[in-house]
Write a protein that binds this DNA or RNA. Structure first.
Lengths: 243, 243
DNA sequence: CGTTCGTGTGAACGGTGTTTACGGAGTTCG
DNA sequence: CGAACTCCGTAAACACCGTTCACACGAACG
């Protein structure tokens, strides 16, 4: 059946158990509670045994990030696919709502993946990889709108010239990681610019809500998010497709 | 001279030293590095002695939050006052730039104050108090624009009705904490709504930058921030006052 | 069969937050 | 002045943490 030897299967199995246990601790009590000894206790082994699977606690957390991103990506894809392919605008809304819903339902995971203060040092390698899985899900549903003329894309000469090089480099990176079949290369500079600004607004609002920075003002921040999303959609001329 | 006895002066002095030491550790190495024993070491005392001043490490961190907010508020006020009172729009810009600059220069402090994942439990009491000192500085410079007709405030009937009660309650709270002299009571529902949405965009973009969630795309996110701010200003009709 | 390799253990080191009992210095009051 | 009291700091201890190391045991391989 599987190419893997018995040993390899066992190893993969406990590896999964470790991450599952770590995940549960993270969800229930936050980052500081995911402890090697706590994980080992739950698995019925001792803490040093975990070093056979991960180089350090930090490495385990990085692996956790990837798991989380994969789950988030799957969650997002499911939400998106609940909308028909013939409604590209609604699919984007589904992605945005899905992201917000997931973040609010998993605050500690959100904080781990999307809010480590990057004090200078470059993000760990594995982190980027995991992030891409989430980014890919988002881009797949968003890209079609940005390359087609379905929304109002700002003219290239309205984006700050200091950004041109960065944006072109970013487009190249996108095209590479998304594969040749994606239309990433057709993105105009204005389109990439708009994408980043939209991402900033979406992420920003979600972070604001997850971190409770609106609690002092409103009891439910959902209407604010809804307004923000509607405003953004209107601003870019994203209208529901009549079916 | 001072009402305080000798004992009280000494106590206040070491209290300051404790927080200063904690602050330095936070700035240099992040939240996890601010350790009771490390602080004690630097002060030449032992760790349990710190319990004479703070009930726990967590309580000390809360006190740190207040210090940080006070410093941020002072920083903001200084930036604002570098602009003349006759240029209210420019003062708002100065506040926004100041907030971003401070956040990027103090990522760990920003994370501590503005990005603790609020997993259900209400924010600690002291935290809110500290936050207010920052909020007050911001509001003082922003309120005049929102009560006057200097910007385009959305009509009250365009804000979601579910928010009305919350917004009115929030206005009441503002009027209370800002004192009777402030024009907070004159805010329309649309104005409060616009304030919150603008705060969301500002905070959101800053958090995005501090947490390096744009690094994968651009080498410098400053032009993006500048565009966002300019877009926001244009949207609300905030134009520089001709002098 | 013997050997190697993978996986786990137990002990240990240095670090952490926190509690406890205790001592000594400063303050207050008879 | 001297006694009583309050405050500040200490040392020891507890339970926990990440991490390293030497060692053992069983499965896999030649």
């Amino acid at each position: 059946m599987s190419e893997a030897t018995r040993r390899e299967r066992l190893r993969a199995e406990t590896e999964r158990e470790i991450r599952a246990s770590a995940r549960e601790l993270l969800v229930r009590e936050g980052r500081e509670a995911v402890t090697l000894r706590a994980i080992a206790r739950e698995l019925g082994i001792t803490a040093p045994a975990l070093y056979r699977y991960y180089d350090s606690r930090e490495a385990l957390l990085v692996a956790l990030c990837q798991d989380i991103c994969a789950d988030l990506a799957a969650d997002l894809r499911a939400a998106i696919d609940r909308v028909g392919q013939d409604q590209p605008a609604e699919r984007v809304f589904a992605a945005c709502w899905g992201f917000r819903r997931w973040a609010l339902a998993h605050p500690h995971e959100f904080a781990l993946v999307f809010a480590r203060p990057s004090a200078g040092e470059p993000a760990p390698t594995g982190h980027e990889l995991g992030r891409d899985e989430f980014g890919r899900a988002f881009l797949e549903v968003v890209l079609p709108l940005f390359v087609s003329a379905r929304i109002w894309v700002p003219a290239d000469d309205t984006v700050p010239t200091e950004l041109h090089d960065d944006l072109l480099r970013f487009r190249e990176m996108l095209a590479e990681t998304l594969g040749g079949s994606s239309p990433a290369r057709e993105l105009s500079i204005g389109a990439i610019f708009l994408m980043l600004q939209s991402w900033a607004r979406l992420y920003g609002h979600v972070a604001l809500e997850v971190f409770g920075q609106l609690d002092f003002a409103v009891s439910s921040s959902e209407p604010l998010f809804e307004s923000m999303l509607a405003g953004l959609a209107e601003e870019v001329g994203l209208t529901p497709s009549m079916h």
